[in-house]
Amino acid sequence: MAKFQSLKEAVSDNLKDGDTVAFEGFTHLIPHAAAHEAIRQNRKGLTLVRMTPDVVYDQMIGMGMVDKIIFSYAGNPGVGLLRRMRDAVENKWPKALEIEEHSHAAMANAYEAGAAGLPCAVFRGYKGAGLKDVNNNIREVTCPFTGEKLAAVPSVRPDVTFIHAQKANKRGDILIEGIIGVQKEAVLAAKRAVVTVEEVVDDFDDVHVNACILPRWAVTSVCVVPGGAHPSYAHGYYTRDNAAYVEWDKIASDRGLFQEWMQKNVLTVDETVFEKRISALKGAA
């Protein structure tokens, strides 16, 4: 049953060293504030899962918190490559990073299988693709009815999933709007789920009957963190901070600059900075 908590408490209660954890968001609603709290709490030995690891996973990898990453597209969207992740893969800095690489179709299916309580996902994919030669978790099954050869991957079952959403109501139900990505599946696939939200409203009586709502009993913790997706965006609240993504490319290109930036903007602040960061981005969403 959803418990309203401070972000600090929610991360402390739900994320342990060595956990497999997903901070999901498909360009939209990326839970940056939650990931920054995890960085401040200095979690180690994590296996990170995400379809589209971008800036915030680059930061966690650069801080040496990550042993392994399971992903399908590791880039800075609209800008280029992830330089901290590259440094880990190419030069083992600050430490070696194990990678388990998939396609989007595989990851989406794997989350869905996790949410459905299945051990693996079956789909038509990876035909002729090189990934199946370098990833032992991409296998083949034969359809017992037609004989068709299909791809199989293990389901994703995180110990904990973090997402950001627009609203919670007072009971703790969660409303997600806009590009909903794979967040519902990521929450339902996980043992524990922490949701940061822009605001709490009385009820959801005015939302569409088919809206994407996660009932409070499917969520472990709810934390109110306005701006908690920045520099990603929250549809209806604030726009994407494209300049911050461009700036990250410069920051991440240099180890010293990166460490300075993390010290100043993550380690020595708390989640209240996020509301200030979005003040100029409101209204246009």
Partner: peptide
């Protein structure tokens, strides 16, 4: 759009579906 997930794409779409639905029903 700068990225494949900009809000502009959602605002002007006929419908926006989840990523698993996109890859399973519509693409596959």
């Amino acid at each position: 759009p700068l990225s494949i997930g900009d809000g502009e794409l959602c605002d002007t779409a006929v419908t926006t579906v989840s990523v698993p639905e996109m890859f399973r029903y519509w693409l596959q």
